[in-house]
């Protein structure tokens, strides 16, 4: 139950309360159960758990993106009608996709800093990095996000 709450919080902070978020939570729990032999009690639990959760969330976002590309024609019709209302949601989804597409370390650093509101020092401690490395990685991640979100924005059908 505690793990389910953690997983739900982790997913919810990243994609909001989307209807498919609970499926990701279940995937995380199943995976934790299946690969529990990889956990070493001598090491901290959180990095192990969040690495699994993050991986499952990325998988879900990727498969949703593939699905969205296939269903673009239907979506376009709906989007034209509901564009203003959906604008905020689209932006948040675009950003979530862009974060998911970052290299792993950048993704973890950006997620922990921005979604979890952790301090640079806490992120450095959790990921076993120096504070300077966390700042540099975050800077690179933001730069890449700006570029990616800009590119996606230019190609959005509503535009």
């Amino acid at each position: 139950m505690l793990l389910a709450r953690e997983a739900r919080g982790f997913v919810g902070r990243r994609v909001g309360w989307a209807e498919w978020a609970e499926d990701v939570v279940q995937e995380v729990l199943l995976t934790v159960h299946r690969v529990r032999s990889t956990y070493d009690p001598a090491r901290p639990f959180a990095p192990w758990f969040y690495a699994i959760a993050s991986s499952r969330l990325v998988d879900a976002l990727r498969s949703r993106r593939r699905l969205a590309l296939r269903e673009v024609a239907d979506d376009e019709a709906v989007a034209r009608r509901e564009a203003p209302r959906a604008e905020a949601h689209v932006l948040s989804d675009t950003l979530a996709h862009a974060v998911a597409g970052l290299p792993r370390v950048q993704r973890e650093v950006v997620s922990l800093l921005k979604y979890e509101d952790m301090s640079v020092r806490d992120v450095a401690r959790r990921l076993g990095m120096s504070e300077a490395a966390v700042k540099t990685t975050a800077h690179r991640g933001y730069k890449m996000l700006r570029r990616t979100v800009g590119d996606l924005g230019e190609h959005r059908p509503a535009d």
């Binding site: 690969v35 990889t38 070493d40 090491r43 901290p44 959180a46 990095p47 192990w48 758990f49 969040y50 690495a51 699994i52 991986s55 792993r104 370390v105 973890e108 990921l127 076993g128 990095m129």
Partner: peptide
């Protein structure tokens, strides 16, 4: 790399 959370150094 096949252990979650085990190795992040490039």
């Amino acid at each position: 790399l096949s252990v979650p959370g085990g190795e992040t150094r490039a």
